[in-house]
Design a protein around this nucleic acid. Structure first.
Lengths: 168, 168
DNA sequence: AATGTTACGTCAGCCTTGTTGACATTCCAA
DNA sequence: TTGGAATGTCAACAAGGCTGACGTAACATT
């Protein structure tokens, strides 16, 4: 145990750092993530896709003409794992892989019109829930939400996130 | 698109509800959840367990003498999936399943001393990161963080969460 | 020009963790 | 006594991670 009772430190009240408070945050993360993925999951199932496909579509859409290596770093999976997913999306005509201009070893990834359509459908489903949550909690809560999440990321991932956040 | 520009509504600034802001929250959730699970995952690997084992240990620890059905509802998986995990934990002497007193069909689940030890190790690893994130973001941000997460949950899960949160 | 490195794809095999379906057992309750 | 609930278990399957190995093309360096 690290904080089992009221603990004034540097003249501040650190009650929010008790193990109890941390536990609530941990359980909230677990349950909230289920909600976070629930709506896209339902849509994906209709198309015979999984979460991995959603993630690929999302980040290809976010970073037009991104390379495979780039996507690997963002998603944090192996190339074999990503390749399985990409192969399906390319075969189904949702993603296009064009040979790189400057470096012909690279593949620049794009969403086709069909791909963009599915991505938009998934994103909108997820946004509906987020929008409701944001609205219910209010702007100040949203700011705190984002701050804590950002502080929770691994350092290298936070860099990736911030680049994306700030519009590349 | 639902919010593409400044949108005063009811005399309030709802800038935080733009698709851009929602997207940042969505990506933050994705990346933060990776960090959230990273530390326990490393420990679990040493013992040959996975995330499913962590979740079982956590909620058995939280709700002493809980039943299997109860745990199923909390975890949101099938009994077959949970049973596989429980079987392993029981075989390894981390969990004990005692026949229910009032209803002998039920199994009351407990952590053994060994089970408690691993649970504590996993929880502490996760708390270290949460504590750092909470500290970095501050008490007001933490309150907002929890508010948004709670609003993001499915209704039935939110009830489960709130019961646990308020100490059963 | 030769050699090394990088980017990517692919095959094979393995693991965890989720699913469905079917069936047996036990035991409470009507 | 009988129906249904709670539990366990077997089998089969799928998604999506992983490692290791190998091949090819293209770029980079010497």
């Amino acid at each position: 145990m690290v904080q089992t009772g009221p603990n004034p430190s540097s003249g501040e009240n650190l009650l929010f750092l008790t193990d109890e408070q941390l536990r609530k945050g941990i359980e909230a993360m677990f349950f909230a993530y289920r909600g976070f993925t629930a709506d896209p999951d339902r849509i994906l199932e209709e198309y015979g896709y999984g979460r991995a496909h959603h993630r690929a579509l999302h980040f290809i859409n976010r970073s037009h003409a991104t390379t495979v290596n780039n996507l690997l770093a963002t998603l944090g999976v192996t190339k074999q794992s990503l390749n399985r997913v990409l192969r399906g999306l390319i075969a189904d005509g949702l993603v296009e892989a064009r040979v790189g201009r400057t470096d012909r070893r690279e593949r620049n990834l794009f969403l086709t019109d069909t791909g963009q359509e599915l991505e938009r459908q998934l994103a909108e489903a997820q946004r509906v829930r987020m929008r409701a949550a944001y609205r219910a909690a209010g702007p100040q809560a949203v700011a705190g939400f984002r701050q804590v999440l950002e502080a929770m990321m691994d350092d290298d991932i936070r860099n990736t996130y911030q680049s994306l956040r700030d519009g590349r």
